[in-house]
Design a binder for these strands. Structure first.
Length: 422
RNA sequence: CCGACUUAGCAAGG
């Protein structure tokens, strides 16, 4: 058993779940009893690989061995089903647990409510919460209510989110910062920054202190509307609440400037980051590069890339895809394609986005469809599967260059590959 | 008793 334990530890690191299952079976066949730790290791590996069905089987084997799995083990499997968008399986498991008298916990229901929300079933999630409210020992906590509020917010139903807030107050549970942030988020999705501000004021009256996330959400709402003046002034107002703007908020601002076609604004924000003594992270570099690339200035994106390298950060596939987009916008297919070599030097594998961007660059110029098709071939030779975007781009390119026959051929090829044209 | 589970930022001219 000790031996098996060590072996399983190794396999778990490499996520070799099939081998782990085999060892577990072997132990049991020989009439030994694996201990709880062994079982848990296999279960968590299976769940990491998104195999809740297999994990549940192991859970059942544990029970056969008279090892009562603890509630964390059950929670993990329930959560696994929910993350795999199979909430009904999670619900089945819960009802069989109830029949066998296995301890249920609030976390289990929290994850189910979240899963229902992810399946756009907030209405069902609401029912689950109401059942919990009537239960003696499984009363919803502030987290439960928040999860449900978020489910409504995802469905852009701010009215029901408020309803949940009312329910929690009625149940004697005080809304917290997360509850209010969720409402702010809901209004943000609805493009109503002014209502975001209103919720923030209500939050202050509660009294609760808005945090970085609150401001981040409101700043984003202004940015979506391209109301950059207000976004900036809100960031300045943060100090009054003793909240220091962080890298996320600055990045949100940069994205807003990029969206508003104001790359210089993004560059200024980038300077602000450094002035605050914050080290820009890879995401902020990407956002600034994207601001340059989206505004047809690949050379400036290139300068930013140099700065990234000087800062000692590792460029990644997204960085190069963004740079390729810059060349796409100025219709420089060759320069975009040349990035492939550069990436090779860094040991970065181009992905479907990178290739599709390069293909678009060729497609955007009449008479370069052959180049586009060459890259399309190279991509497949490199083992990268084209997707609907890739085909859509090529089909568009052929249509633009008045070659509908070619476009039709691609449409057929797409279907042969099992891709659904949209 | 303490944790854990909930809410913000970034890439593809279709």
């Amino acid at each position: 058993l000790k031996d098996a334990n060590a072996k399983l530890q190794q396999l778990s690191k490499r996520k070799l779940w099939k081998e782990m299952q085999a060892i577990l079976q072997d132990i049991r066949r020989k009439g030994h009893r694996p201990n709880i730790e062994l079982y848990m290791l296999v279960i968590s590996t299976l769940l990491e690989r998104r195999l809740p069905a297999a994990a549940q089987k192991v859970l059942e084997e544990m029970a056969e061995d008279d090892l009562q799995p603890n509630s964390v083990a059950y929670y993990l499997v329930i959560n696994g089903w929910c993350e795999a968008r199979r909430v009904d399986e999670a619900l089945n498991l819960v009802s069989s647990m109830r029949k066998s008298g296995i301890q249920l916990t609030v976390s289990m229901f929290n994850t189910i409510i979240k899963g229902l929300g992810a399946e756009k079933r907030a209405r069902d999630a609401m029912k689950v919460l109401r059942i919990m409210e009537k239960h003696e020992t499984l009363k919803p906590t502030v987290i439960t209510y928040n999860i449900l509020m978020n489910a409504w917010s995802e469905e852009e139903n701010v009215k029901e989110a408020w309803t949940v807030m009312g329910m929690m107050r009625k149940a004697g549970v005080a809304p917290d910062v997360v509850s209010y942030n969720t409402l702010v988020k809901a209004y943000g999705k609805l493009n109503r920054p002014d209502d975001c501000e209103r919720v923030m004021r209500e939050m202050v009256d509660a009294p609760l202190r808005p945090d970085e996330q609150t401001f981040g959400l409101v700043v984003k709402a202004y940015c979506e509307q391209k109301r950059m003046e207000e976004a900036l002034s809100l960031v300045k107002r943060m100090k009054r609440y003793n909240v220091v703007p962080n890298i996320t908020i600055f990045t949100t601002l940069m994205k807003g400037f990029a969206k508003a076609s104001k790359p210089d604004g993004a560059a200024q924000v980038f300077e602000m980051i450094k002035e605050q003594g914050i080290e820009p992270d890879i995401a902020s570099f990407r956002t600034l590069m994207n601001a340059w690339s989206s505004s047809d200035q690949p050379d400036r994106a290139r300068v930013t890339l140099d700065e990234l390298l000087e800062a000692g950060l590792q460029p990644d596939v997204e960085i190069f895809s963004i740079l390729a987009k810059g060349y796409l916008r100025v219709r420089e297919g060759q320069k975009a394609e040349k990035l492939l070599e550069e990436m090779k030097n860094y040991g970065i594998q181009p992905n479907v986005v990178t290739y599709t961007t390069i293909i678009s660059a060729y497609c955007s110029k009449s008479g370069e469809m052959e180049e586009a098709m060459r890259v399309f071939q190279a991509m497949q030779n490199a083992g990268v599967r084209p997707n609907v975007f890739t085909f859509g781009t090529l089909i568009w390119g052929y249509c633009e260059s008045m070659k509908p026959r070619k476009a039709e051929e691609l449409l057929a090829e797409m279907e042969r590959m099992g891709l659904e044209p949209d």
